[in-house]
Write a protein that binds this DNA or RNA. Sequence first.
RNA 1: GCGAACGUGGUGAAGUGGUUAACACAUCUGGCUGUGAACCAGACAUUCGUGAGUUCGAUUCUCAUCGUUCGCCCCA
Length: 434
Amino acid sequence: MEEIKNVKGTHDVFGDENNAYEKVESLMKSIAEIYAYKGVRPPVLEYNSVFVRGVGESSDVVRKEMYTFADKGGRDLTLRPEFTAGIMRLVVQNKLYATSELPLKLYYVGPVFRYERPQLGRYRQFNQFGVESIGHNSPMNDVEVIVLAYTILSSLGLENVKIKINTLGDEASRNAYRTALKEYFAKYIDNMCVDCKSRFELNPLRILDCKVPEDRPVIDGAPKIGAYLSKESKERFDAVLEALESLQIPYEIDQGLVRGLDYYSETVFEFHYKSNKGNDYGAIGAGGHYGSLMKELGGPDLPGVGFSFGIERIVSVLQDNELLNDVAYELDAYIMPLDKSLDLYAQEVAVILRNSGGYKVDICFDNVKLGNMFKRATNKNAKYAVIIGEDEAKAESVVLKDLATQEQTTVKIENLIDKLDELYESSYPEEEEK
RNA sequence: GCGAACGUGGUGAAGUGGUUAACACAUCUGGCUGUGAACCAGACAUUCGUGAGUUCGAUUCUCAUCGUUCGCCCCA
């Protein structure tokens, strides 16, 4: 029989790692909400055209990385390779731009799919968290999403995040720059790598991203975007940089930063981080401003700005830096009935502790030796053991033992929650919320 | 899509063309009939990613395939 296993490039998340994902995602969400962003859940499946028109035909993501297929009704569908295009479709279709004040500020988290060669920190199904600020053209929106992203990374404990930033200018600037680049590269293109040759035809801007060392001298000598920016684009970019400076967000300008999704214009940025162990996960997050994406998808001509994080990469970096060590599941109490006949009583005690006390409680129904139960309690990171023997059951009481101090007392069940609350207060005063 | 390395239990790993595949950790059981350690005894890979070939015989050699990791490309 054929072995059943997971699909290449996918991975299972469970145990402490699942807790790490929960922790990271909930922190991201709560900070986004502090910045007045609201959650959205676009579908995983979209019509293929959403991404072809949204992300752009010349992007590698669309050209060779999408999971596209026909469903049984013959629809051309795609498993989303990113969120922004789908969210823009959601906004256009539901006319959210007309029903609420702009900018529309949305956050999302969920899986995306790209057919790529798996590597460290790179999966075919992975999770992204991100935000979009839509419909309002002030450069302050660009600043806000960068500050938000930076705040999230700092809150996770990542110091020295490197923010690379650039501007692609408005359409006029990019057209002028593209023409200049074509003119410049026309002289050299015959001697450049095959990828550059195709980029030359499709999107000359992307030649700047080329990593082939032989091509570098030519690329380094290419015209820079700065000289081709319109007055408006230049002012806009300066406004962003100025704001970042006064908010003390460190950045470095990288004029080679062009991004691989076609919808970007004006401000673009990436967040880079090397783990303390030296593993380079590349960009752990990236984003930018987009001018005509909504119009491209049939909506009004409104701009937007957003970023997204790769959750897997961030979790990996945090693990490398040992910033996720407090993530283990902890049990408040482990109930140990000493005999099968006491299982029901144990169940009743558990209901009291769980439903009335809100404590995290588990029960041992294996009736193994007491010593083994203690071992299991330790393995489950339980703080207290609740021992139930015949004597206790008769007296409607339990033995409550603090597993750390080894102190134990016999408590009537009507006093159990009060007693546990009291013990908790003295032993774990910092843990108020349960 | 291209180039390279690797693939032995739950985990970390040693090993060899030939009867029982080390060792350690973890787990479970008992010694200890109601208190966690330590110790002692025992259990735990019909099998070395999968398939085919060479061979009297392969976990070990060859090929293919799948997977992981690394570099390129691209990206989060």
